[in-house]
Design a protein around this nucleic acid. Structure first.
Lengths: 138, 138
DNA sequence: TATTGTTATACTCTATAACTATA
DNA sequence: TATAGTTATAGAGTATAACAATA
């Protein structure tokens, strides 16, 4: 792959990702909030400290985000029984529903784009997907 | 392409884009500011209204962002000679340098990832790049 | 004494409403 | 009167510093 094609591919990835991210379940749900919900959905209930590390924000910042999510009834905050300093954050049923709905909308948007491709083109993306995945995981 | 693979590809794109975006020329340059600089670099000098539409923020919001960029010497604000209501925003030499440096850093980061692939894998990405591009442009 | 979370405070980016200058 | 930009004000998300509770 040439430098030029590497650049093109990178720019394309950024643009495509921007479009996908615009597909939310609810416009009132910001990127920061939604990202927390996906972390809880994918990796399960966690302490506030764990979440702040995962999202790479400070504990006070995550605390404020969690406060607003708790007020909205989207996550729950429970004190740890064995260590009183810790709190466990988890999705409420409403939070879980919201994650699923957002995921469904994004998948549907992306699938509608893929539907315009011919079989050869889809095969090319099929082949590229695991390679891109490895790049992201590196 | 199956639904499952579509979902995987979409998630991978989001993760990869997040990693690329983290590569900035200068950590003091936020996403909002940098996005304005890239718009000016790619599409040339524009009015404030045009920029606010492009970035999908309100004019007052864009105005504030432009104020701070002008104060930092990164863009210039010039009144239109033929229509006194309009102002034209453009990159300063420093702004242009910053865009190029950011682009270089992101390309370098991405190239270092691509370097770990074998020729077949690079060929697969080569084939996928124009297809992804079409998806993004749709 | 170290760890976990929270509160206090401030800065940036966003918005809506109201205003100024120009066409 | 309509348009382009700006100012006033407020809310969300980020940070650092200081504090409280618990181990």
């Amino acid at each position: 792959m040439s430098h030029v094609l590497g650049h093109e591919l990178r720019v394309t990835l950024l643009r495509l990702a921007r479009r996908v991210r615009a597909e939310r379940a609810d416009d009132a749900m910001s990127d920061a909030r939604l990202s927390v919900l996906f972390a809880l959905f994918n990796e399960g209930a966690q302490t506030l400290g764990s979440l702040s590390e995962h999202e790479r924000v400070t504990p006070p910042s995550m605390n404020r985000t969690i406060n607003s999510l708790v007020e909205s009834g989207i996550v729950t905050r429970v004190s740890d029984a064995s260590d009183g300093r810790k709190v466990t954050i988890d999705l409420s049923p409403e939070g879980r529903r919201l994650v699923k709905e957002t995921r469904r909308k994004r998948d549907a948007w992306f699938a509608s784009r893929l539907a315009s491709l011919n079989p050869d083109e889809r095969a090319a993306l099929d082949a590229a997907a695991p390679i891109l995945r490895r790049l992201a995981d590196q």
